Simulated assay, not measured.
Amino acid sequence: MTELLYLIAIALSLGLLGLGAFLWALKSGQFDDLDGAAHRILFDDDPPPPQPKAAAAPGETPMKGA
């Protein structure tokens, strides 16, 4: 019977610890912008750097379509 009281006390303390962690995360702004990261990954802010064009060797004509 005493073990049951210990288990109840442990369960209540873990529940209060979880509630405290949730309230701390709520107060620190963890849940302010839920969609921002999902949208941010889809759009790249910086354009890719320009690729240098391959120069044709002297006497060669550049290939069309490449």
Rank of each mutant, 00 (worst) to 15 (best):
M1A: 14
M1Y: 07
M1V: 02
T2E: 10
T2N: 11
E3P: 09
E3W: 10
L4K: 13
L5D: 14
Y6Q: 13
L7E: 04
L7F: 01
I8S: 05
I8Y: 01
A9T: 01
I10S: 04
A11Y: 03
A11R: 05
L12V: 03
L12I: 08
S13L: 13
S13G: 11
L14I: 05
L14Y: 00
G15D: 04
L16E: 03
G18I: 04
G20Y: 10
G20T: 13
G20F: 12
L23Q: 02
L23Y: 02
L23S: 00
L23V: 00
W24G: 00
W24A: 01
A25E: 09
A25G: 04
A25R: 05
L26V: 12
L26D: 10
K27D: 07
K27G: 08
K27T: 05
S28P: 02
S28V: 12
G29C: 00
Q30K: 05
Q30T: 11
F31P: 01
D32F: 03
D32G: 06
D33H: 08
D33P: 00
D33N: 09
L34R: 10
L34P: 12
D35W: 06
G36A: 15
A38I: 11
A38S: 01
A38Q: 04
A38V: 12
H39V: 12
H39P: 02
H39K: 15
R40P: 02
R40F: 05
L42M: 14
L42F: 13
L42V: 14
L42Q: 15
L42E: 11
F43H: 06
F43Y: 13
D44N: 11
D44R: 12
D45L: 13
D45A: 15
D46F: 06
P47V: 04
P47E: 09
P48C: 01
P48Y: 01
P49K: 11
P50M: 07
P50L: 13
Q51H: 10
Q51Y: 06
Q51M: 12
P52Q: 11
P52D: 12
K53M: 15
K53G: 14
A55P: 05
A56Y: 04
A56N: 12
A56E: 10
A56R: 13
A56T: 10
A56H: 02
A57I: 03
A57M: 06
P58R: 14
P58D: 15
P58Q: 14
G59V: 07
G59A: 09
E60Q: 13
E60T: 14
T61I: 14
T61W: 11
P62W: 06
M63P: 15
M63N: 08
M63C: 06
K64V: 09
K64N: 03
A66W: 08
A66Q: 06
A66L: 08
